[in-house]
Design a protein around this nucleic acid. Structure first.
Lengths: 229, 229, 229, 229
DNA sequence: TATGAATGAGGGTTCATTCAT
DNA sequence: CATGAATGAACCCTCATTCAT
């Protein structure tokens, strides 16, 4: 007979994590109730405290679990795409799919969005363990396209501009639904969105690139005079 | 002489709205407790119920109050700036200041961000009463720059791209702080940010314009709406 | 010019008493809220405390008001009816109408019923000021019919039997409605009920009367042997 | 040997039911406070919510508990007593004891009285589950004594007259105490009362019987219902 | 005299957590 | 290991009452 697997009833823990992820994402940490979670997981009310100490412990466990799942499902392939522009496209499309596609775990990025708004210790871990790396990737792509010097602060700004365009559809999804009900978020719609964001960003970045080689002689705009031009 | 006002007109109500705004923005609707709010407002537990019916009533009142303040403080001047590019800059800078500058009420956009993530009836009102109008403004600016036909869906996408870049600093502020602690958000930093976003977006929009079949000087939506129809 | 009436704004007090009577009768003392009362009376929230000290004060005032109204509307005519049996009929019918007829003040006996179940100081006053007199009347009638000696305890029992049959339709009205939905309580139904109760009681009382003159030789029943007769 | 029961089976629940019964009977549903109940039951505030959902749930549970107790303590023996008159006596005495004797649960009929005055869903259940059956019993007895045809409405009136005499001492107990302080309610006093009410009612019913067109010995509804239809 | 804003005690309910089994 | 009954703190809300006007 084969040795029984390490933790036969780890099944309970997994169900707990899945349920907790869904509920936390749906309702937020405070509004989520343990009883809601254990009901979905068909577990006992004491199971949470038994396995994770308390509600907070379950929450952080959920985050680790989510990151693990996410990494397995979307391995970071920094060099997908042959040209920088293609890399940009792949990056944008991948991010867009991850945060909006109804794939598993669907609740991961909803949790992230919540954490961004109301950070807890979980966010620190998230930033260090994955976000920083992701940001470096897009920064690298931006650097390649713009040919800006490696530590030019504009790289950071441009990377933020790219990411901001993408995250908009997660953070402001409710507003988009209300303003433009015709906008859907099926796979093909996401890919169309990715193309737009890529084009938009590419044009901007290439404009910067064009100003680059010639060295900063380009007249920088100071902004319009405040009132009467 | 007029009779002195019955009470310092609704002093308690105003204190309540201010405190509630802060607490709701900080903790969210659920997590915010009435006791916290009335403690800050130096009011009584029952005051909320008396003036606003219940917690929910206070919440919507806070939103209306915030919108009123916001409109007084930042009157919509759709046509500030002489050229479309300047209009773009004014719009971006103004939005950035509103959502990040610590003007009064400082908590307004934090509340908005929460509503976007977890919409309630308050968001519907907000969309209809102000967001839709704001979006129309930036869409108009985009239309002028790109010379796209009025209802081209790309206008909506581009407008979203612009707004997304701005909102990023509100919604993902916590992440930005952690990734780039050197980024500050004083007035001058915001203005620098506005310049970047404007430049980035302008380049992208002008690239689109260039691809357009130079439908020559279509009437620029520029001057004030004709007064007397 | 005639002197203005004693209390011109006694109108407010009257509206207050009327409203309070209705609400107290409907919901009971505890469940009735001052705000409910003043809303119906179109009065101010402080009016109750101003005029009657507190809720309890209003309650007792309502009772006095109710008794006054009742006495005006149904003056006690102990000697209505020429024969004792007719007196019995008049008494029963009158009581039945008072407690069930939808006349003004409709809520008086509902209040009484509540007080009987959960006595307060108001009941003491009510007993001394009217119930005792009413009971003496029916006791007198019973005495006349049965020819029992004036202080025979059976008089009290019989009077209670008569009254019990009548009150049943007020106190157990809800049950009657459920058990016998066909039973209605319009004026004519009440009068039919009165005839039944009178007949029923008269037969019982006359049976006692018959046993009377012959002196207590009638075998008194001890009740059935407990199990096997 | 069986495992020892997990807990003293629902000891808390029973204490809760008993305390709740007392408090509800004393103060009524609205005025009764959960905190009062749990204090008497030496239980926790949340126990009520845990076991019964909410206050209302506890209330209906109390009613079911009371009925169960009552049925165990006073099993319905419709045919106790050999003659109809003896049956009448047994019925009256039994009802009187149940509603006034301080048997367990002492508060049951006080609750019932409250429900009759201010009905809730609990009354419906009570009517269907026990009152209707009880009323059928007394109606059957009345039918046997009066020899009225089975569905004669007078049967219902007479049964109501009997029950009304009994319930009077429950519903108007407070008035009786004030009017006739000498009336006591010990076991022997109740039995004396029962004799009076039986005699009073018997005389009335026999008078009706005498008026009946001697429809001779119609089958007396006496023996047990035939077993096998 | 009459008003309505303000108060504070206390109500029902919810919830994370613990503990004996 | 796992359970479910039990706990107590804290929440939102209601209400009679008061006070300055």
């Amino acid at each position: 007979m084969a040795v029984p697997p390490h933790h036969p009833p780890a099944a309970t823990e997994n169900r707990l994590l899945e349920s907790a992820g869904e509920v936390f994402a749906e309702k937020g940490f405070r509004a989520a109730t343990i009883r809601d979670i254990i009901r979905r997981a068909k577990a006992n009310v004491a199971a949470v405290n038994y396995h994770y100490g308390d509600k907070q412990g379950l929450y952080t466990a959920v985050f680790r679990y989510a990151r693990k799942c996410c990494e397995e499902q979307f391995p970071v392939d920094a060099d997908a795409g042959s040209t920088p522009l293609e890399q940009l496209h792949v990056f944008v499309r991948s991010l867009l799919r991850r945060i909006l596609d109804h794939g598993r775990p669907a609740w991961h990025w909803q949790l992230m969005a919540r954490e961004m708004m109301e950070p807890s210790a979980a966010l620190d871990e998230m930033v260090e363990q994955s976000i920083r790396r992701e940001f470096a990737i897009i920064a690298g792509i931006v650097e390649n396209i713009t040919r800006l010097p490696p530590h030019d602060p504009r790289i950071r700004l441009c990377a933020s501009s790219v990411i901001g365009q993408v995250l908009f559809y997660r953070h402001a999804q409710a507003v988009v639904h209300r303003l433009h009900p015709e906008q859907e978020f099926a796979r093909k719609d996401l890919d169309a969105l990715a193309i737009h964001i890529t084009d938009f960003s590419a044009a901007a970045l290439e404009a910067i690139a064009k100003r680059q080689p010639a060295k900063p002689n380009g007249r920088r705009r100071n902004g319009p005079r405040e009132k009467n031009a």
